[in-house]
């Protein structure tokens, strides 16, 4: 019996890893031949995306993905980090016990709901007060900035809590105020952990699809300002895969390969900084 359970669990464990490999293999199998045929340079460097005419440049979308992710970080990191600092260093433990789970609940809200809120509330606000179509890089950045908050806040809280209390005491005993202690000692000691939090938030932002499709307008072009419409790599796949076929479909898989590699690199960097911290 014992043996049987062990074997069963082994199979289950391996199959989940197998699924990961199958997905990876499939994306690359579908995408790589196309990349080799067209040339990585023409795909990554091309600015025109006209699948019906055989033009498959995804540069505007790479730029779109990077811009909207950068924008999300500009909004999400200062907010999230200040929130974590407040909860760990300034609030009463009771407040933290209530607020932390509440913030983590934010992560459980489906992205389509974020997108819906964006379309109903945010987009009209931008259109009326700032101009442009409203469906824009700015709207995408704000929605994504909010969506990465739970990731950044909850990891930052863990990291800040892991900073030894004795560091704080040592600093306070030298006559530092709480604010000085936080900015000069605690944040420095937690630096690599906070970098990890930011990179994981970034991974979430760059991979997000639904909310981004709903609020960014999806125009394939380089944005002239933050009020212009953009399309990301994820949106491109999400919008077109349903009806694409032949070369077009392969091009979308190639888009997937590019996205996959970008996210892999981010995760790699994240785990490297984490290992550094343990050492």
């Amino acid at each position: 019996m014992e043996k049987l359970i062990e074997k069963g669990l082994l199979v289950i464990a391996y199959s989940s890893i197998a699924i990961l490999f199958i997905i990876t293999f499939f994306i690359f199998k579908e995408g790589l031949p196309f990349i080799f045929r067209e040339g990585l340079g023409t795909i990554l460097g091309g600015v025109e995306w006209r699948p019906t005419k055989g033009e498959f440049g995804i540069l505007p979308m790479v730029v779109g993905s990077l811009l909207v992710t950068g924008g999300a970080l500009v909004i999400g990191v200062p907010l999230g980090l200040s929130c974590a600092v407040f909860l760990v260093e300034f609030s009463k433990p009771k407040v933290r016990r209530i607020l932390k789970p509440a913030i983590e609940l934010l992560a459980g809200i489906p992205s389509v709901v974020y997108g819906f809120l964006g379309v109903i509330l945010l987009v009209p606000l931008i259109r009326v007060h700032l101009g442009g179509p409203g469906l824009s890089l700015l709207a995408g950045s704000i929605i994504l900035g909010i969506m990465i908050l739970p990731t950044i806040i909850s990891i930052s809280i863990d990291v800040l809590e892991a900073v030894p209390q004795s560091y704080r005491e040592g600093s306070i005993a030298l006559g530092a105020t709480t604010t000085q202690t936080v900015s000069m000692v605690v944040l420095k000691a937690a630096r690599s952990g906070i970098v990890t939090a930011v990179i994981l938030g970034m991974g979430r932002a760059i991979g997000e699809t639904m909310a981004v499709i709903m609020v960014t307008g999806n125009a394939v072009a380089f944005p002239g300002s933050i009020l212009d419409s953009i399309r990301t790599l994820t949106s491109n796949i999400g919008i077109e895969l349903a009806y694409a076929s032949g070369d077009h479909q392969e091009a979308l898989f190639a888009t997937g390969v590019v996205l996959f590699v970008m996210i892999m690199v981010l995760n790699l960097v994240a785990s490297m900084t984490r290992k550094k911290r343990i050492r």
Binding site: P164, S166, Y167, E169, G170, A173, V185, K188, A189
Partner: peptide
């Protein structure tokens, strides 16, 4: 104040 366990800042 000097504590029982030395805690230099990192």
């Amino acid at each position: 104040m000097v504590f029982d366990v030395p805690v230099p800042l990192p």
